[in-house]
Simulated assay, not measured.
Amino acid sequence: MPVNDNVIITCALTGAGDTVRKSPHVPVTPEQIATSAVEAAEAGAAVVHIHVRDPETGDPSRDPRLYREVVERIKETGTDVVINLTAGMGGDLVIDPVEPLKELGELPGTDLVGGLDRLPHVEELLPDICTLDCGSLNFGDNLYISTPDMLRQGAKRIQELGVRPELEIFDTGQLWFAKQLLAEGLLDNPTVFQLCMGIPWGAPADPGVLQSMVNMLPEGAQWASFALGRMQMPWVAQSILLGGQVRVGLEDNLYLGKGNKVSNAQLVERAVRITENLGSRVATPDEARQKLGLRPRS
């Protein structure tokens, strides 16, 4: 597997985790998220991956108005960056461990909607990329739901919209099913995969596991991978050495060194340094668009 000599860096800006209270650098409001996106792009990110949060509480949100404001603010700056919107929100199901059918869907933390109901902001804004989380998972202590039928519906609608899905893969069975979507004609080439490592209880951040998942990818696929926490930067090197793209950002990691809380731009700067130290160069947004089969910049 050749080393990737032209590396796309994605910055995952804020995510949906309970990180707002853990670091002052995690952006919350649309203005903060957009500013962080511009700073990450200026630092070398070709792609920004965007979640939104309730501006008052910092809790994760699916509100299309918040996505619209973030995207508009980025575009108003004239910054050239590929927009990647999450479409994974709406799959959280909290279950009582003793009485699993008790108040099903009513426990705090549950946010479960159908596959198409996870896409209104994608339908409105038509980003370059949106994510498609390719299966259900024990996501930490909770359950993330994305059934095969939900995925078929979502993939078909994303295909109709002309948006490129980034296939979020948290375990090997999800990769198997993503290849089934391709076989059924619900995905277009080039397929784009994000191999998500170290999320309890999905694929562990183990180089051997990553290698096996890369070996399973369909021919011609573009792929990136990331790992959580202190493994984020080692995983930049790991991905490049196996021929892939990389992802960093405050969605996945808050630190550079013990106790050193940093910004998205600082995480991107470190990823740029690792990339260049390996003898590779950082891809521009236009190069990323070409690699990933995206529309030219409008």
Rank of each mutant, 00 (worst) to 15 (best):
G78K: 13
Q180D: 05
P55M: 05
A34P: 14
P165A: 01
V192H: 08
E56I: 15
E123S: 09
E39K: 15
R270Y: 11
Q222S: 06
L132F: 06
L116N: 02
E31V: 15
A34I: 15
L182C: 04
T275I: 02
R62W: 07
Y67C: 09
T131F: 12
Q222A: 07
M89N: 06
D133E: 12
A40E: 09
D96N: 14
G109H: 10
N277D: 12
V268R: 02
P285F: 03
R157A: 02
N253R: 11
V20L: 11
M197S: 03
P148N: 00
V113E: 01
I158H: 02
L112V: 11
E269G: 01
V20H: 03
N253D: 11
R118K: 13
L217Y: 05
V94F: 09
W176Q: 03
L93W: 07
N4S: 01
V52A: 05
G17V: 13
E106G: 01
I9G: 00
G173E: 07
A224Y: 09
P200T: 10
A43P: 13
R118A: 08
G88D: 11
D18F: 14
T77L: 10
A283V: 03
S263G: 00
W223L: 08
T172P: 06
V248I: 14
Q159F: 13
Y144M: 13
P64V: 08
L292Y: 12
L187H: 03
N189W: 14
P55S: 03
